[in-house]
């Protein structure tokens, strides 16, 4: 809890809170449709108003992901995406944004374990990365990653869920740096009709458990939903809705346009969240 001040992501969230709004956190996987174009996509997303970037490492067995992200990950792997490519994108974000946009890696544990946890942390820090989100690594199993991240001042973003007990919320809040990722509903990534009441309750409970910053993910896909979540959360995390714009058969530039447009709508939603009572 006391380490939050050393986190670049947390500093960015504080800065945005000072201007009266939550952060828009945008996810895209590296290597879809190939590494070069995934760099274009991420920078497009940054230019269109994303405040924090989350770059996914494609994995063969993504149990926390729904069909949209699964499809992109499968295609990225088929196109030859490697774990080290994520560092290329991290570097590109740092360069493109002049270091103002924190870049977090989102990875299932085995690719990082195989790379070498310490080596990955070192290379991520060297590339200018802010830290890592770990969907299948809970603090209880994260001694190795935690030690490496602490050494290098990297963010450790763990998840909490509506099913988490108070005890687990405390444990996770204590172990996290940067922010705590609150899963809005029980389920996997993907778009949903609405972001349930459970999300706001979970954010409140996670803050009570000691978390300084809590961002909400899973199921946010529209500007309206972003406005609703941005009212109470420190950040609004969007993945599938962005990835979906890149999955069409349209020409690449049209897909980038669509990505920019959806990002812009989400950014507008976040921007108006706390000025109009939240539901626009």
């Amino acid at each position: 809890m006391s380490t939050a001040t050393t986190s670049r992501t947390a500093a960015r969230l504080d800065e945005l809170a000072g201007t009266g709004r939550a952060a828009l956190v945008g996810y895209l996987p590296v290597g879809f449709p190939d590494v070069a174009r995934s760099v274009e996509a991420v920078t497009t997303m940054v230019d269109a108003g994303v405040d924090v970037v989350e770059i996914g490492v494609p994995y063969t067995d993504p149990v926390m992901d729904g069909p949209v992200i699964q499809r992109a990950a499968e295609a990225a792997l088929a196109a030859g995406a490697r774990v080290r490519d994520v560092l290329t994108v991290v570097e590109a974000v740092a360069e493109h944004s002049g270091g103002t946009v924190p870049a977090l890696v989102m990875s299932y544990y085995n690719p990082v374990l195989r790379y070498g946890v310490e080596a990955f942390a070192r290379d991520l820090a060297a590339a200018g990365g802010a830290g890592m989100i770990t969907p299948d690594l809970i603090p209880d199993e994260a001694a190795e990653w935690s030690a490496a991240a602490d050494e290098l001042g990297l963010d450790k973003v763990y998840l909490v869920a509506p099913s988490s007990t108070a005890e687990r919320l405390h444990l996770t809040a204590r172990a996290s740096r940067g922010f705590v990722y609150a899963a809005s509903t029980m389920g996997v990534t993907g778009t949903r009709e609405s972001v349930g009441l459970a999300a706001e309750e979970l954010v409140t409970a996670t803050r009570s458990a000691g978390a300084d910053h809590v961002c909400v993910g899973l199921g946010v896909s529209t500007g309206e939903q972003a406005a609703e979540v941005g009212r109470y959360a420190d950040g609004v995390i969007v993945g599938s809705a962005l990835v979906r714009t890149l999955l069409s058969d349209d020409p690449w530039t049209d897909r980038l346009d669509a990505l920019g447009r959806v990002t812009g709508e989400l950014a507008a939603g976040v921007a108006r969240a706390r000025t109009t009572g939240g539901d626009s």
């Binding site: 149990v63 299948d136 690594l137 099913s163």
Partner: peptide, 14 residues
């Protein structure tokens, strides 16, 4: 061994 799963499942495993 261990429990390398999403946090959402921990309550059920407990």
């Amino acid at each position: 061994g261990g429990r390398y799963v999403p946090e959402a499942l921990i309550a059920a495993l407990d």
